[in-house]
Design a protein around this nucleic acid. Structure first.
Lengths: 206, 206
DNA sequence: TTAGCCTCTTTCCAACGTCAAGATTGCGGG
DNA sequence: CCCGCAATCTTGACGTTGGAAAGAGGCTAA
């Protein structure tokens, strides 16, 4: 439904076009290389046009972050549901697989979502997304660690999130598995998630 | 030895001055807010002066990253040595404490060191630093898991690094312990490190 | 002393984000 | 049907940025 051809003075759906080109641009040029003018250029629109849809560049980035979190949680739930329900540890691993899959597919956006800048940039966009992510994790852990104390559940949540976030972050930065094949890398990731799930399950019986 | 007063045409030690002001600036303004001109301004020097000491802005950032990694590994060894040698798990926790302490004291620099941009920016500065960090971790694990297979040791290293990196990253971003006291946060961090160490120790006996 | 090199300044350029003002369009009320 | 208005987009401008080029100043070794 791209009306790229022979559009008149009005674009038709500039907002979406900017989000789309912005997303590509972030992955191509990195966070520091992102440019509002280039974004407008790719949407075939003047450099000042975005201002009518986003108050500032940070406002556009905030929208990207918002959608990123929505996709991230979607990827996690999808992957977790793919697993038999009678194996609780596997659901936890599934969450991690979904988490890492999204990050691997959108490395720069992922970094932006968890960037220190983000906190200053949008203040809210990230918080909402992170909150729903936290709920998702807590729901699985509440199920798995039904009999544990609240403190233990929190520690388990900290630990689970830290492991999957840390692993994929280090992979994206090239610190882990720099020259591994994709398959070997996935295996290392699954091993880390398995160790994480084992550790979390231990919180069930002190 | 600051010769800030009545310096002549020549600065005397501009390179170090730029590194110093650059480091402060990064923490103050964030990665995106960092500016070479502001850096020069704080060193009381014209905006083109830095070019004679750093080929580009990325070159200065690379130097910051290089020094950051040196400090990070130093912080880890210091903290690990503070521990009785007969308690191997404690040394592992010590490494994590040193890791997190550095990150907490230099949050933006830490983010820069492990930023996707960094990879593109310096290509080498980060790799060397990360390599020595990896060696540090491997040395402790080789000791602790002397009888484990190479694959197990690698998995243990992945897991240990991922846990400490992920936890402190999420803390710095505000995702973990957003409104906890500093003391409570440290407790949560130690809990995560303890759980990590316990799991790593399990790699010793399959 | 003086020649030469290193350091720093000045000036310039293209590109950036943002603002203000004008041009163009689509839409709803007469 | 059309007319005016608001939303959308363009043009042009301002201040700032990173970087290149060229000149001025000062240190040092011969």
């Amino acid at each position: 439904m791209t009306r790229s051809k022979a559009r008149g003075y009005h674009h038709g759906d500039l907002r979406e076009a900017l989000v789309a080109s912005g997303r590509k641009l972030v992955e191509e040029k990195g966070i520091r290389g992102f440019t509002l003018r280039e974004c407008a250029r790719r949407a075939e629109v003047s450099h000042a046009a975005p201002a009518h849809h986003f108050a500032s560049m940070d406002d556009l980035l905030a929208e990207l972050v918002r959608r990123g979190f929505a996709e991230l949680t979607a990827s996690m739930t999808t992957e977790a549901q793919r697993v038999a329900d009678d194996e609780p540890a596997a659901r936890l691993v599934g969450l991690g697989v979904g988490y890492m899959a999204f990050a691997a597919a959108n490395p720069t956006l992922f970094q932006l979502m968890f960037s220190r800048e983000a906190n200053h940039i949008e203040a809210k966009a990230g918080d909402e997304g992170a909150a729903s992510l936290r709920r998702l994790l807590a729901a699985v852990l509440d199920d798995v660690l039904a009999e544990a104390s609240d403190e233990d559940r929190q520690q388990a949540a900290d630990f689970a999130w830290a492991t999957m976030h840390g692993f994929i972050t280090l992979v994206l930065e090239g610190e882990i598995g720099g020259r591994d094949s994709s398959k070997a890398l996935k295996a290392r990731g699954l091993a880390a998630l398995a160790a994480m799930a084992e550790t979390v399950m231990r919180f069930a019986r002190p």
